[in-house]
Amino acid sequence: MNETQQYLAHLAEMRALMERSSRFLSLSGLSGVWAGICALAGAGAVYAYLDMLPLSATDGYYYEKAIRTVKWGMDYKRAFVLIALLVLVTALAGGIFFTTRKARRQGMKVWDGSSKRMLWAIAVPLAAGGVFCLALLRWDLPALVAPSTLVFYGLALVNGSKHTLRDVEFLGLTEIALGLAGLFYLGNGLELWTTGFGLLHIVYGAWMYFKYEP
């Protein structure tokens, strides 16, 4: 069955070409691990700002305390937005670094049709979520911010996963689940945020790293 072998080889090659041309496969698991570390540092900064420890609600919930807090010369809105932006920028910078490095090792381009499509798919729900959360702060609803960031980030990942490694979809679904749970358990919002953005990133990132980058 020489012909059969040949057809099978053709099919395998075609499948590889379809994958390689339509999905961004250079996303590095280390990007996820780094994002998780940045998020843990950010969560630490928020706990420090509020003078609280995880899973403690001595002076009321964290969001009640936030409204009363002015520290480091900032009210809670400025502090939260500043910390969030710092986390986002450092996480992105590291993500770009590790992903560029992986692409170079694979001999693939970083900036091509597939990575542009992936970024656009992620950027739209993420930007909408960012503005949504700014509006929550505008109306003094800090309790809803942490779970909302999880929900929107999860939706962004599920959307973006169509253009990159499929594993990202599972991460997205877990983030959405955590966010939705957080909307019902507002008092644990910070802990769920730390779990979703910190621990899950590290766990999924390490798992993807060992799966794809041996």
Binding site: E13, M14, M18, S21, G113
Partner: peptide, 18 residues
């Protein structure tokens, strides 16, 4: 030719160099 078609059915427009 199968390779070319594989790429073009999953992407809208692909440039020559890609």
């Amino acid at each position: 030719r199968l390779g070319i078609m594989s790429i073009l059915v999953v992407n809208d427009w692909v440039d020559y160099n890609t």
